[in-house]
């Protein structure tokens, strides 16, 4: 299904992308020191029309930062971000604003992503009104329509967010993201804050909307079962860098990077035979802080297969013979 030389314009693209946060702090001698946190540290990622790309990785590896940077909600430190072929890297907020209707975001916590002082109807109409896509009357009709699509009663438009449960709020947040018919949606762990019982429903809603509106997703998650279910492609992130990328089948059934192997080994398999024969390269220790610069491979400190070359050079993400499964590890570089 995936064409190795897909010539369609990517929807979203990161090119050697780096996003750094610098924080100034006084050290113990009272001197001002600047620490640089390399949240995203050289990512190349291409997301094609209609794809659902899943981004997985440990907490703090930079998934959210990468997702926000693709929408230019973060300042780009180095490299480039493109959307539908146009370069967003250095654009000002004023120039980005009209572009924003085409790319949207769903946040992790539906209890903090909706303005408590605005009625649901106002929140949902906002994307249409600020971009001049509808009159107030038209917006009201579109709000009723989208509420129905996400599975809520259109009569709730006059209520405030506090009247809703987490699952209902996430439906509202999703409705806000898709009401202006964007091309691209970044969903940042959109079900991990919800009750187990509603997670599947929200996941189904994402799949339904993808069909209905021909959406392209970047789906951030740490639940590998969810990823297998929803993703066309998986990217594994470690300390600001993508270390492995490919179809869910190839990445999960044939993980190449020692980090991916360890990540998968940490998940119990539902199949008891597999579960017993599960290899056990459990992830040792903590990842290094993104504030310290690393030379060589950033995983080598926790890697069971570290070689001398790993300390000397930083492995690039290179595609294998099949042209889709890519890995950044010297074990697989010829």
């Amino acid at each position: 299904m995936i064409d190795p030389v897909d010539t369609r314009l990517p929807v979203s693209e990161a090119v050697a992308l780096k996003v750094q946060y610098s924080s100034r702090r006084r050290n113990c001698l009272g001197r001002l020191t600047t620490t640089t946190i390399r949240a995203v540290d050289g990512v190349d990622l291409t997301i094609r029309p209609g794809e659902a790309v899943a981004l997985v990785g440990e907490s703090g590896c930079g998934k959210s930062t990468l997702g926000r940077a693709l929408l230019r909600l973060e300042r780009v430190s180095e490299g480039a971000v493109r959307f539908a072929g146009s370069d967003l890297t250095g654009l000002s907020e004023a120039i980005l604003r009209p572009i924003r209707r085409n790319m949207q975001m769903v946040f992790q916590d539906p209890f903090s992503s909706l303005n408590p002082r605005m009625q649901i109807g106002e929140t949902l109409a906002e994307p249409l009104l600020v971009h001049g896509l509808a009159s107030k009357a038209e917006a009201r009709a579109r709000v009723a329509e989208i509420l129905q699509i996400v599975g809520l009663d259109p009569a709730v438009a006059g209520r405030h967010p506090h009247a809703f449960s987490g699952g209902q709020r996430q439906r509202i947040a999703i409705a806000r993201a898709v009401i202006a018919r964007p091309k691209f949606v970044v969903a940042d762990e959109p079900i991990s804050a919800l009750d187990i019982s509603v997670q599947a429903q929200i996941l189904d809603l994402f799949e339904d909307l993808k069909e209905r509106f021909a959406l392209t997703y970047l789906f951030i998650s740490h639940d590998l079962a969810v990823v297998r279910h929803i993703a066309d492609r998986v990217a594994v992130m470690y300390l600001g860098r993508i270390v492995e990328e490919g179809s869910p089948e190839s990445v999960f059934d044939n993980p190449l990077h020692p980090y991916t192997q360890a990540l998968l080994a940490a998940v119990p398999s539902p199949d008891p035979v597999r579960e017993r024969s599960r290899p056990n390269p459990v992830l040792r220790g903590e990842p290094p802080s993104p504030a310290t610069a690393v030379t060589g491979c950033r995983f080598r400190g926790r890697c069971a297969h570290a070689m001398p070359v790993c300390a000397m050079a930083d492995p690039a993400l290179a595609r294998g013979a099949d042209g889709t499964h890519a890995v950044a590890c010297f074990l697989h570089h010829q």
């Binding site: 909600l73 975001m105 992503s113 906002e126 994307p127 600020v130």
Partner: peptide, 19 residues
């Protein structure tokens, strides 16, 4: 998050400050 969400939606600065 709702302030970042407003920016993601494309809400301008005056409206963000007020609403």
């Amino acid at each position: 998050d709702y302030v970042l969400a407003a920016r993601a939606v494309g809400v301008g600065t005056p409206r963000t400050l007020w609403r």
